[in-house]
Design a protein around this nucleic acid. Structure first.
Lengths: 254, 254
DNA sequence: AAGTGGTCTAGACCACTTT
DNA sequence: AAGTGGTCTAGACCACTTC
């Protein structure tokens, strides 16, 4: 009667540890695989819960619990009456998902991006370490300045694995409208789903003072971000210098 | 047959808006009320799901979904086989819940706290605004230095509503072991459940340089935290200066 | 009217803890 | 053995969207 595959049967005999994996977790892993493989692309409508339940031979409630967790992790988006969609960075509401710098007064504004440098280099040791590459592997290096309402506010450097971003050029970056993560997702099939940032206080050196139009020695936030795609694979290193004269970094603790 | 109170019937006739409130949300609100009123105290075992289902005349599944959300918000903690417990700050794992400053190398360490000043004052205008008090209302002011492995790292000022923290004294603070939130919860019945921090970069002034043993002009993180208890009521303002020579502020983006 | 996600119920069984 | 939370199922109905 019960179509559930035995949890115990498939475990190695010697496994003394908690060898129990709920069915909905297994379903979640299968759905994640389909997302990663591109069976359903960002922005697209996924099969309905009923359909997935049929495919996996489980009840709708079990599929539901799996999708609930994927929605909580922002991998998919549910819309009542319409269906479940693959999350995408090419959406208005996604623009500020990874940007925690907020204006002291008023609502978040869109930024203008000015690219200072785009080139391919060999990964320095520290970049290679954080991106889990071999030292000397090819990486794309990008340097840009972000301005809010005409005020230069962020000086940012990025390093991306060269292997994943083969056709990435300055021209393509300049002509693309919207956040870079949208471009990465649509043109290079790499979707960022999570990131961690380490933040420190530093002072502006000559270069930073010039790009951000602040005095040398001005205190700045330094945010070092590592972004991950499916399977917790690191695919971006970003180091930003934030001017906090009229902005602050917002952190919600819960 | 259905014990569910009608969602529509009790609505005002003219209500054109989305006047629908799922049953589990109503149950969640009722449970939250009991938490807030102290019917079950921090650290205590709550009634079982079956018992609550009986009390509220709903199915166990509905109670379960309510508690699921409370657990996700860290208001309660579930333990399989034992029961559901009211969350508490007087626990090892809660110590680092609101502290995002991590050592660059090694695991998080416990801090030593040295109190510089504890007094009652009238709330300055800005403090009153952030704590939603009237300007001039009594507040408790605390200033302290936190050290990790002997190194002074955080210079912190706190403002607490005087009304809620009547017996709070320097002696009580010094003799209490563990995080301040544990003291607030056990002695003053005020439990912090959420906070927001705004972070900026500043430079050390004469006072900060003395307390943190750094040169004047050293860049520091300035974190301004407002903490909330049940009902999104602000009950603490905290302003910390963090030395980021050997530490960083960790932010998870998801 | 039909299809989707969202809620609610009732009952069975499992994993874990305590008695 | 008894009690707790955790999983899974099956079916009903609701709210929302589209046809």
């Amino acid at each position: 009667m019960n179509p559930v595959p035995s949890n115990q049967a498939s475990e190695p005999a010697g496994s003394a540890s908690p060898s129990f994996r709920p069915l909905y977790q297994q379903i979640k892993a299968l759905i994640t695989q389909s997302l990663q493989s591109g069976e359903w692309k960002p922005g697209e409508l996924m099969p309905s819960e009923v359909e997935l339940a049929g495919r996996f031979k489980v009840s709708q409630g079990t599929v539901r619990k799996a999708i609930d967790e994927l929605a909580a992790e922002n991998l998919v988006v549910r819309r009542q009456g319409k269906g479940t969609f693959v999350a995408t960075h090419a959406e208005e509401r996604a623009h500020f998902r990874f940007l925690r710098l907020m204006p002291d007064e008023g609502l978040p504004q869109h930024s203008d991006s000015r690219f200072v440098e785009v080139k391919r280099i060999r990964a320095p040791a520290e970049v290679a370490r954080l991106l889990e590459l071999k030292s000397g592997d090819a990486v794309v290096y990008i340097k840009r300045v972000l301005s809010f309402e005409g005020q230069p506010t962020i000086l940012e450097e990025l390093w991306l694995p060269g292997q994943l971003f083969k056709g990435l050029s300055a021209e393509r970056l300049v002509e693309y409208k919207g956040p870079m993560y949208g471009l990465f997702e649509s043109e290079f099939g790499t979707r960022m789903i999570r990131a961690t940032e380490k933040i420190r206080a530093v002072t502006a050196d000559a270069s930073a003072s010039e790009f951000l139009k602040v005095a040398e020695g001005t205190p700045l936030l330094c945010a070092e971000r590592v972004s991950f795609t499916y399977g917790d694979k690191a695919v971006e290193l970003r180091r930003g210098l934030y001017s906090t004269a009229n902005h602050h970094y917002l952190s919600e603790l819960s």
